[in-house]
C-alpha cells in the first residue's frame, strides 16, 4: 500500500472511531467536545492506545501498560462524570457538559482526580495492596444497602431507572430526561 493509502486508511479509522464515540455519547446523554478537530485528535490517540496497550487508556494520563493498573482510566474513565459535573469536561476534555457543548462555557484545565495510590501504582508498576476508597465510604456498606455513609441511590421519576453514584447523571441514560427529574431513592 502506498503512503497516501496508509494515511487515508488512518483517516477513515479515526473518522469511524469519532462517529462511534459521538453516537454512543448521545445515546447515553453525554456530549463530545464540540471542537471537532480536538475530539478527533483524541479519537486518534485512543486508537493509538488501543494498538499499544490493547485497551483505550486515557490519552492524557500515563498508562501503566497493563490493564489491571489502568482499569479506572480506560476511556470513559471512572472520573468522567464527576469531572464533567464539576469542571464542565472530563480530564482530557473529550466529554463535556451540556453547557460546554452549547458554547455557554469554556473548557479549562481539569485537575487530576485519580487517587494518589493509583498514580503511585502506575509509577511502581504494581497494584496497591487494597484499592483506595474515600474514607467516608467503606466498600461493604454500599453493597449491603446499609449504613448512613453508603453511596446514594438515585431514581429517575420518569422511567424508574436506578443508579448508585454520588450525584444523578446529567441526563437519564434510559429515557433522556434531565438531572432535575431524579429523586434520591436511598
Amino acid at each position: 500500500m502506498s503512503g497516501a493509502g496508509v494515511e487515508g486508511d488512518r483517516e477513515r479509522r479515526v473518522e469511524a472511531k469519532y462517529e462511534k464515540l459521538k453516537k454512543e455519547a448521545a445515546a447515553g446523554g453525554y456530549f463530545l467536545n464540540p471542537d471537532e478537530p480536538f475530539a478527533k485528535d483524541l479519537a486518534e490517540s485512543l486508537l493509538v492506545n488501543e494498538e499499544r496497550y490493547g485497551y483505550a487508556a486515557c490519552p492524557c494520563r500515563l498508562s501503566g501498560g497493563r490493564r489491571e493498573l489502568d482499569l479506572d482510566i480506560i476511556c470513559p474513565c471512572d472520573y468522567r462524570d464527576a469531572d464533567v459535573e464539576e469542571h464542565g469536561a472530563c480530564y482530557c476534555a473529550l466529554y463535556v457538559s451540556g453547557e460546554v457543548a452549547r458554547g455557554e462555557r469554556e473548557v479549562e484545565p481539569v485537575p487530576e482526580r485519580r487517587p494518589d495510590a493509583l498514580i503511585e501504582a502506575v509509577a511502581k508498576g504494581e497494584l496497591p495492596v487494597a484499592a483506595p476508597q474515600p474514607a467516608e465510604r467503606a466498600p461493604s456498606q454500599g453493597a449491603a444497602f446499609g449504613g448512613s455513609s453508603a453511596i446514594p441511590v438515585w431514581r429517575c421519576k420518569v422511567c424508574g431507572y436506578l443508579c448508585a453514584r454520588d450525584n444523578p447523571p446529567g441526563v437519564c441514560p434510559i429515557c433522556k430526561v434531565t438531572k432535575d427529574r431524579f429523586e434520591r431513592f436511598y
Binding site: 480536538f38 485528535d41 490517540s45 493509538v48 490519552p59 492524557c60 500515563l62 476534555a93
Partner: peptide, 28 residues
Amino acid sequence: TLSTCIWCKKTKEFLAQNNVAYEYVDMD
C-alpha cells in the same frame, strides 16, 4: 508530556508559535 495528550500538544504548539526554545520528554 505524553505523545497522545492533546493538552501536551497544545503546550508544544504554543511554545513553537512563540518561538521559544524548549525541551520535552514524551513519558509514554
